[in-house]
Every structure is written in structure tokens, then in C-alpha cells.
Nucleic acid binder design. Structure first.
Lengths: 232, 232
DNA sequence: GAATGCATGAAACAAATGTTTAAATCAAGT
DNA sequence: ACTTGATTTAAACATTTGTTTCATGCATTC
């Protein structure tokens, strides 16, 4: 009774719409894609979107959640793993950052989707949807951010909490920008190895962010710390 | 004859449209703002946009160029200043970064526009318009990026050129994300000083990016270097 | 095999988009 | 005073937007 009892065959159309939507959102952005583009690409009727999802906005929410939740879960899993491994002493910064960033790679590989599309989509989730995420996703994201902030704070006791919050935010910026423009960025590399895989990109981001997080601050009026509103 | 001979009074309407457009673009993004919103806010007729600018796209270009060029010029000026000051020896990383980022602050103050609006607008220029800038702006931006890459390369001879290009790109990400979300970020600071001014934010970005640029890289397959396509 | 109920389809909806037209307005030049 | 030519205006343009309606299809259940 849950669903699919009286179904022509699973959620065939629904899934085709979700897939086409993700493809198009990645390429052109959420606002720029019309329902007609989506349904044409999905070989479905325009009304199908409102039937299955209620509205365009709800469709967007569902696509976003569908791709964001696995990333969040994987982050939590890796953070668990890290804390277990480093029960004695603190978890190193690069391990935390890895747990924060690698899930994009992992989930991408599992989903079997094209790397460029997946990256662009995730980048857009962060840059175009960062504020208006569905409540469910917001709560999960907040838990992750809170946890990462705490662990970073342990790993970097010398960095004030407020400064740390800002720096974590800068890490978001690095990730968001890199995901969005990974395709353009790859043209930077015309060397022997040709196309640096995402593992390389990942490592470069981690190196950079680690350096940024640990950086000495050129003394300025300090404030008491707070919790960032940003969630990715 | 150039323009304004037979003008009701300068480019009054044109300027009102430019101003309203910038305000709205900053708040809601380029795609989401309609010509009607702009002309309503500017107390002008819808046709005035196409009359003065040709099309919406050309209006966007003009607003972007109008705000971007002063930033580029100021960057060049500060880089000149830095090179003069450090004729003996290399220009330190933080000075280069300062020349790269401070112009946003400077131009903002000169323009007298609200900080939040100016930041958001600049952020959107980078995140939503990074690729489709008008050719004129592209050329100028390329010169700036090339120059900064060169100077950073001198200041950081240990960092491979390709890695450096990626890291400079990460700096773009930090800037873009911070500008876009400066208002949300400020809520992080609930300390005594209340609202950290942009000078503080600037210093935090510089510290972070400096740390990132200088970071040691955890050995990975190296490639030969290239030139980033990104311009801001 | 008729009835039930979910899923699809074609068509129409009002509203909003960027752009164009052609008449009106206005300041300056002769 | 009349012409000139740039500017502004209201109205209409054709498209496109998200959404809704209602008839149809089809599988399952009684």
C-alpha cells in the first residue's frame, strides 16, 4: 500500500523526471530550467511534474535532498570512523577536511553519474540553494557543521572559535567554487597526466584548506565566537 | 554630439535604471530580476531599457562593467604600488592578496553604496557571470590574473605553477563566497564589537588564503602548469 | 467482467517575460 | 514660430512561464 501497488511499473516516470531535472539543473541552474525542458528530456508530460511533486519548487527540493542526504550521511560515517581511529589524541585537520569533502567523490562514484554533471549540480546546490534548503536537509546539515566545527576546534585549540567559524566558511567557498567550475579548472592542467582525477583535486583542496585553517592570524580585534549559519 | 546634446537633463533616466538594476541584481540575481521590476523601481518606462541599452543582456553587461572596472584598475594600481615598494626582493604574499581583495572595499567606500548591496552584487558578478563577461572586461581581468599569478609565483617559488593556479582559484572561491554571503556571515559575530567591519573580514580572508597558498602539498602526481581561465 | 483508482495525455489557463511599435513630449537650433 | 531629433510614453507584440482541468488509459481488485 505504501506506493507502487497500482503502478504501471515502479516510479518509472518520476525517476525519469528526477534524472532529467538533475541533468538540466546542473547545466543551466535551477531558475533557468523550465518544466517543459525537463519533461521533454524525460519524455513525460508537463502535468506529470505537478502530479508527482506538487510544484517546481518541490521538485527542486526533492532533487536536492536526494543528492545531498547521501553526502551528509557519508560525512557523518567518515567522522565516526575518524573519531574511532583517533580515540587517543585529536583527529588531525586533514582527516576532518577529508571527511568533509570526500563524500562528494564517493557519492558521485556510487551514483554512476558523470563527474562534470555531478560536480556542477552539487556546486549549484551550495551557491544557489544554500539558504532555501528543505527543513529536513537543514537539520542534518546543521548537525554536520556543528560536529565539524567542534572537531576542528579540538584540532586547532589556538584558533579562536569565531575565526574558526569564518575559516570553515571559507572552506565552503573553496568547495562550492571548485565543484561549480571543475570543468573549467581542468583546462588548467595540460600536463602529462592530462586530466587530473577528482582525487587529485580533492587533495589540493584539502592541502589548501588545511593551510588556511592553521594559518596564523595577523592580530585584529577579537570577538566571541558563534555558529555559522551555513550548512554545506 | 557624443551624447547628451539634446538631453532632457544628462543621462538621468539611464542612470536611474543602472542604479535600480544594480540594487535588484544584488538582491535577487541577474536572471530573477525582470525589466519591469527595474523600470518600476527606477520610475521609468519598460521601453526605456531597450532604448538606452538595447536589451536586458546589454544592460547587465553595462552594470557589471561599471562596477568591475574600477576594481580591476584599483588592483593594478595596488600591484604597481607594491612592486615599487618592494623593488629589492619579492612582494610578500599577503601584500599581493591585499591588492587582490582590498579593491572591493575601496571601490565600495568610494561608490558610497550600502555595503551589503555592494558585496552581494560583486559576489553575484563572480558566481553568476564569471564566464559570460563582456570581452572588454575579460581582457582586463585576464591581465590582472596573469600578473597576480606571476607575482605569486615569485613569492612562492616552492609551489609548482599548476598547484599555484589551482590555489589562486581557491582564493577566488573564498572571495566570491564571502562577498555573496557576507550578511549571513556577520551573524557569526555576536561579540563585543558587534559588527565586524569589512576590514576585519578582509584581514581574515587574507590570513586564510595566505595559509592556503603557502601550504605544503601532500605529494601527488605533479603536472606541468597552465593558466587559469578564471578572471575575478 | 465491471468497478476502482492511480497514472498519463492533450489542451487550456492566467500571468509574466523581453521586445517592438507608433504616437506624444520636450528642449534646443534655425 | 517652426522644425528637428532625441527622449519618453502607453499599448500591444509573440513567447514562455508554472499550474490546472478533464478526459483517457491501464492494472489491479472485487
Amino acid at each position: 500500500m505504501s506506493q507502487g501497488t497500482q503502478n504501471k511499473g515502479g516510479d518509472e516516470t518520476k525517476n525519469r523526471i528526477l534524472l532529467a531535472a538533475q541533468r538540466l539543473f546542473a547545466e543551466r541552474g535551477f531558475e533557468a530550467v523550465s518544466l517543459r525542458m525537463i519533461t521533454t528530456e524525460a519524455l513525460a508530460n508537463v502535468a506529470a511534474v505537478n502530479y508527482h511533486f506538487g510544484s517546481k519548487e518541490e521538485l527542486i527540493d526533492e532533487v536536492v535532498v536526494q543528492h545531498m542526504m547521501p553526502v551528509m550521511r557519508e560525512r557523518m560515517r567518515l567522522l565516526d570512523e575518524a573519531e574511532q581511529k583517533f580515540q587517543i589524541g585529536v583527529v588531525p585537520v586533514e582527516v576532518i577536511l577529508d571527511a568533509f569533502m570526500r563524500p562528494f567523490l564517493t557519492v558521485m562514484q556510487e551514483s554512476g553519474e558523470s563527474r562534470e554533471l555531478f560536480c556542477k549540480f552539487m556546486g549549484r546546490c551550495m551557491s544557489e540553494r544554500g539558504d532555501k534548503l528543505p527543513p529536513k536537509a537543514i537539520r542534518v546539515a546543521q548537525r554536520v557543521v556543528k560536529r565539524i566545527t567542534g572537531m576542528l576546534s579540538d584540532a586547532l585549540p589556538d584558533v579562536e572559535l569565531e575565526v574558526l567559524s569564518w575559516r570553515l566558511h571559507f572552506c565552503f567557498g573553496v568547495m562550492s567554487h571548485t565543484l561549480m567550475h571543475e570543468d573549467t579548472l581542468k583546462t588548467v592542467s595540460k600536463g602529462v597526466s592530462g586530466d587530473p582525477d577528482f582525487e587529485t583535486t580533492l587533495q589540493r583542496m584539502i592541502d589548501y584548506c588545511k593551510g588556511g585553517l592553521k594559518a596564523g592570524s595577523s592580530a585584529l580585534t577579537p570577538n566571541s565566537g558563534g555558529q555559522s549559519e551555513f550548512l554545506f
